[in-house]
């Protein structure tokens, strides 16, 4: 029995100067599933994520999230209905500490921030959830370090922690393992495996071992178009996919 769809993408189109980055793309993500998007470079994976978060506008088509159309919602508004993303190229607050990075994301979801007097450093309502998240990610020892002082692997982990701090229903992970050592990415796979049971996840990743071991379903994107969607086994056996993508790499 399959869960209801949390995210439905319907005939989405994004053009860049005549280039179709997203070409009539349709697929859906079920509640609770980890859905991976794979495809060669330039297939339009990050462009898709940006349209889902609202960072860039689509030219046509529809996006439904949790039963409502969201294509016209602003990026911050989409964060508030439960969509969070991590960035392919680490995008944190480098001059803030690790804890402060997470606290800021927590703060974003505790009503308005027109609070001018009380020091955030003394606000348990911010600190406590942020610390809990860092504990959960095994980063409690780095809490007071500046982001700039973290290793690449830790920064990638913090990327996800910041996204989680917004209490999302849907996590959009844009190549979370990019540039990681195999040891670090092994660690991250374990974290994702745990997160899987708690969040619906759209995962973009080039690390095929990670994708095939984590994903419930996989959609293959080529030139902005979904050429196949299915379980890892189905994708592995799909002729068209082998030709278009996997075969090239093997």
């Amino acid at each position: 029995m399959s869960s209801p769809d949390l995210l439905i993408i319907d005939k989405l189109v994004k053009r860049y100067d005549g280039l179709l980055a997203t070409d009539d793309l349709s697929f859906s993500l079920r509640e609770g599933e980890l859905h991976a998007i794979i495809g060669p470079n330039g297939a339009g994976k990050t462009t898709l994520i940006k349209q889902l978060t609202g960072e860039i506008a689509s030219d046509a088509g529809a996006i439904h999230f949790d039963g409502r159309p969201i294509r016209r919602l602003s990026e911050p508004a989409r964060s508030h209905i439960g969509i969070a993303r991590s960035f392919q190229i680490t995008s944190l607050f480098p001059d803030f500490t690790v804890l402060e990075n997470v606290m800021l994301a927590v703060q974003a979801h505790q009503g308005h921030s027109f609070r001018f007097w009380r020091a955030t450093g003394k606000e348990e309502r911010l600190i406590e959830p942020a610390r809990a998240l860092l504990d959960d990610m095994g980063m409690e020892d780095s809490a007071d370090h500046l982001v700039a002082a973290l290793s690449h692997g830790e920064q990638r982990q913090l990327e996800i922690a910041v996204a989680l701090a917004t209490k999302p229903k849907l996590l959009l992970l844009d190549e979370p393992m990019a540039g990681m050592s195999s040891e670090d990415s092994g660690h991250l796979v374990e974290i994702l495996r745990r997160l899987k049971s708690r969040y619906s996840i759209l995962l973009i990743e080039h690390d095929m071992d990670a994708v095939f071991s984590l994903a419930d379903r996989i959609t293959v994107l080529v030139y902005g178009r979904a050429i196949a969607t299915g379980t890892p086994d189905e994708i592995r056996d799909n002729e068209e996919v082998r030709r278009a993508y996997l075969g090239e790499e093997a």
Binding site: E55, R85, S91, L104, S113, V162
Partner: peptide
């Protein structure tokens, strides 16, 4: 924190809901 965060990384601020 919002003012400093927006200087530090505006794209991320919008992504986390500000």
């Amino acid at each position: 924190a919002v003012i400093r965060g927006s200087k530090s990384n505006e794209a991320r601020m919008r992504a986390i809901g500000f």
